[in-house]
Simulated assay, not measured.
Amino acid sequence: MHLFTRTWAALHAAVADLSAEDFSRPSGCRGWLVRDLVCHLIVNAQDVLITLVTPAGTAPTHDAITYWTVTDEPPTGEDPGDAVTVRLAAAYGDPARLRAHLDDVGSAAGRAAELADPGLAVSTQDMVLTVADFLMVYSLEWTLHHLDLIAHVPGAEPPPAEGLARTREMLEKITGTAFPASFSDTDVLLVATGRRSPTEAEAAELGDLAARLPFVLG
């Protein structure tokens, strides 16, 4: 619960620090500008609110690790769902409207998470998770999207160190792969998920693992 609150607060603050010009910069999500990603975060926050008030009435079927599927095909931004996000983000026009909507919905999602029973089973995407596991799923999501948000924004604050470390730990469990200890948590997350290519030195250190990348979470 603490990690969800911490990672969400940091991401929310990073959006608040963006200039109007920053919304037109590319993000770390292929095919999306920063404004598109912020629009996606609004949808994420709505999902948090919806899921936290959707008790399952059955035992959990998944946890924060088994929730994820792994493919090797990074999104291109051309998926119909992604295209809707782009059109919706453009419809806001003034970035201030996007920021204000995220403030409203995001603040509500944060409060709902703080008030939720960690042990309650909730339903999302045909899965049942405890609230604690569901919020841990979003801690990973927030951390990766924080990296996406600031990918081309000079001087932006990075995600919290504890969020980076926990997301790396989760990624290694999800993929059944341990990355070299010499890699920073940020470098593991960027390279492992295909957000950037490994350098020659990193590829040499990864060895056979380099040929298996990227691990795309869905």
Results as ranks from 00 to 15, higher is better:
Met1Lys: 10
Thr5Tyr: 00
Ala14Tyr: 08
Leu18Arg: 06
Ser27Gly: 13
Ser27Pro: 13
Cys29Glu: 11
Arg30Thr: 15
Gly31Ala: 10
Trp32Lys: 08
Val38Ala: 12
Cys39Gln: 15
Cys39Gly: 15
Asn44Ala: 13
Thr51Gln: 01
Val53Trp: 00
Pro55His: 04
Gly57Phe: 09
Thr58Phe: 03
Pro60Glu: 03
Asp63Cys: 05
Val70Glu: 05
Pro75Glu: 10
Gly77Leu: 04
Glu78Trp: 00
Asp79Pro: 00
Asp82Arg: 13
Ala83Glu: 13
Ala91Arg: 12
Tyr92Trp: 13
Asp94Leu: 06
Pro95His: 03
Arg97Ile: 00
Leu98Gly: 09
Leu98Glu: 08
Arg99Trp: 06
Val105Ala: 02
Gly106Pro: 10
Glu114Ser: 12
Leu115Asn: 11
Ala116Asn: 06
Asp117Val: 09
Pro118Thr: 03
Ser123Ala: 15
Gln125Val: 12
Gln125Lys: 14
Met127Pro: 00
Leu129Ser: 04
Thr130Gly: 05
Leu135Asn: 07
Leu135His: 07
Leu144Ser: 04
Asp148Pro: 07
Ile150Cys: 02
Ala151Asn: 00
Ala156Cys: 05
Glu162Pro: 01
Ala165Cys: 03
Arg168Leu: 10
Leu171Tyr: 02
Lys173Ala: 14
Lys173Ile: 00
Ile174Met: 11
Thr175Gly: 11
Thr175Met: 09
Gly176His: 04
Thr177Tyr: 00
Ala178Val: 14
Pro180Met: 09
Phe183Trp: 11
Asp185Val: 11
Asp187Lys: 06
Ala192Ile: 02
Ala192Thr: 01
Arg196Asn: 01
Ser197Lys: 14
Ala201Trp: 02
Leu206His: 09
Pro214Tyr: 02
Val216Ala: 07
Leu217Glu: 01
Leu217Ala: 07
Gly218Phe: 02
